[in-house]
Computed example of a mutant assay.
Amino acid sequence: MNKITTCPEFPKTCKSLLSKYLTQDVYSKLNEKKTANNFTLENAILSGVVNLDSGIGVYAGDIESYTTFNLLFDPIIEDYHGFSKEDKHTSNLNPNDLNAPNPDEEGKYILSTRIRVGRNFANIPLGPAITKEQREKIENDASNALNSLNDDLKGTYYPLDGMPENIKKQLISDHFLFKAGDRFLEAAGLNRDWPSGRGIFHNDEKTFLVWVNEEDQLRIISMQEGGDIKEVFERLTTAIKKIEEKIQFSYNDHLGYITSCPTNLGTAMRASVHIKLPNLSEDMNRFKNITDNFHLQIRGIHGEHSESVGGVYDISNKRRLGVTEVQCVQDMYDGVVELIKIEKELENK
């Protein structure tokens, strides 16, 4: 890849927020700047310049990127999250504030529930700007913190580097193993030194999982079969609290929890269910109207851009920044209650 030496010109077909907000004026003002970690505008925009089908097209290399390159990041954040540079973010991880009795006691509709957050270490660069040594230090500190968890969070940490074949097979069959990132993350510098410094922790019950040094330095995941959304949230918040006793996370009052991709800022949370809606999904307009009302996103069961299988969909919160974690999960819960209600009505017809 040649160095970016002039303001990139994007084709008309490019719809990324980078192409929308990187004007010649913005480029000229930011091009010579760099953060204390030597992260430059070129580093921030490379993924979106290489991948013209990006939705966003920018990544931050550290918390400072959001102020150093604010002329680019601020309008992108406002466009995506509807959140202005004067706004403040508030966090609330108190499960007692969530009203979410199991909406599907019989287990007829909700196959599984999964809530995850991204977290990055304070005072260390984010994935796109990190050094190999810093990444290894994160792995060391994270594995120590995770291996000290007890009760139903007690489990084992597995480094990816030099992983024995039998463990690899087991983690693949559990759908726990993550691979090197896609071409978007590759161009952002997030795949460097693969697989050094990466690993996976899971508890003995396989209801709690942490990815170390994937897109975010920690991706903390609570999950189980069925629709007890509150129980999944409680497990997650307990784990976060325990990990925070050993590790300080990168956070500020404006952007909340700091992540390399601006779409995850704020709560960095994705609360989702796999739910079976064969009748409602026959009328995708109606389906989408309901999810839009509750600020939810519809995906196929294998993640973004995938198809549904057998009328099963992945439904998750769309809002992350400017709302609390409790609101994110409440959005998802309230939307799921409505989806089940409509599915039942359609069955009875």
Score class of each variant (00 low, 15 high):
residue 39 F to L: 06
residue 55 G to S: 14
residue 339 L to E: 08
residue 247 I to N: 02
residue 120 N to H: 11
residue 303 G to H: 09
residue 327 Q to W: 02
residue 148 S to I: 01
residue 329 V to C: 05
residue 186 E to R: 03
residue 279 N to Q: 15
residue 87 D to T: 07
residue 204 D to I: 10
residue 87 D to S: 15
residue 341 K to R: 14
residue 248 Q to H: 13
residue 31 N to K: 14
residue 89 H to C: 01
residue 90 T to H: 14
residue 251 Y to H: 13
residue 2 N to D: 09
residue 189 G to V: 05
residue 252 N to E: 13
residue 228 D to S: 10
residue 282 E to A: 13
residue 22 L to H: 03
residue 219 R to T: 06
residue 136 E to V: 05
residue 244 E to L: 09
residue 228 D to M: 05
residue 125 P to Y: 04
residue 46 L to Y: 09
residue 184 F to W: 08
residue 176 F to A: 13
residue 228 D to L: 11
residue 115 I to V: 12
residue 344 K to P: 00
residue 253 D to M: 09
residue 78 E to H: 12
residue 262 P to V: 10
residue 105 E to V: 15
residue 318 K to N: 04
residue 320 R to T: 08
residue 36 A to P: 07
residue 163 M to D: 00
residue 26 V to A: 10
residue 94 N to P: 07
residue 250 S to I: 04
residue 22 L to Q: 05
residue 286 R to K: 15
residue 25 D to I: 12
residue 262 P to L: 08
residue 73 F to R: 02
residue 160 L to G: 02
residue 211 W to R: 00
residue 231 E to P: 00
residue 203 N to L: 03
residue 203 N to D: 10
residue 201 F to H: 02
residue 74 D to W: 11
residue 330 Q to F: 09
residue 324 T to C: 07
residue 161 D to C: 09
residue 30 L to T: 01
residue 214 E to N: 00
residue 276 K to T: 12
residue 103 P to I: 06
residue 312 V to H: 04
residue 246 K to A: 14
residue 69 F to V: 06
residue 88 K to P: 04
residue 126 L to E: 03
residue 214 E to W: 00
residue 325 E to T: 02
residue 7 C to W: 02
residue 244 E to I: 11
residue 38 N to R: 07
residue 189 G to S: 10
residue 237 T to R: 04
residue 332 M to R: 04
residue 11 P to I: 13
residue 341 K to Y: 12
residue 323 V to Y: 09
residue 22 L to S: 05
residue 295 H to D: 14
residue 99 N to M: 12
residue 202 H to Y: 12
residue 55 G to F: 06
residue 133 E to I: 11
residue 5 T to F: 04
residue 132 K to S: 15
residue 272 S to N: 09
residue 72 L to H: 06
residue 114 R to Q: 08
residue 86 E to F: 10
residue 38 N to A: 10
residue 90 T to M: 12
residue 178 F to I: 00
residue 294 F to Y: 15
residue 148 S to F: 06
residue 167 I to A: 06
residue 144 N to K: 14
residue 246 K to C: 08
residue 220 I to A: 04
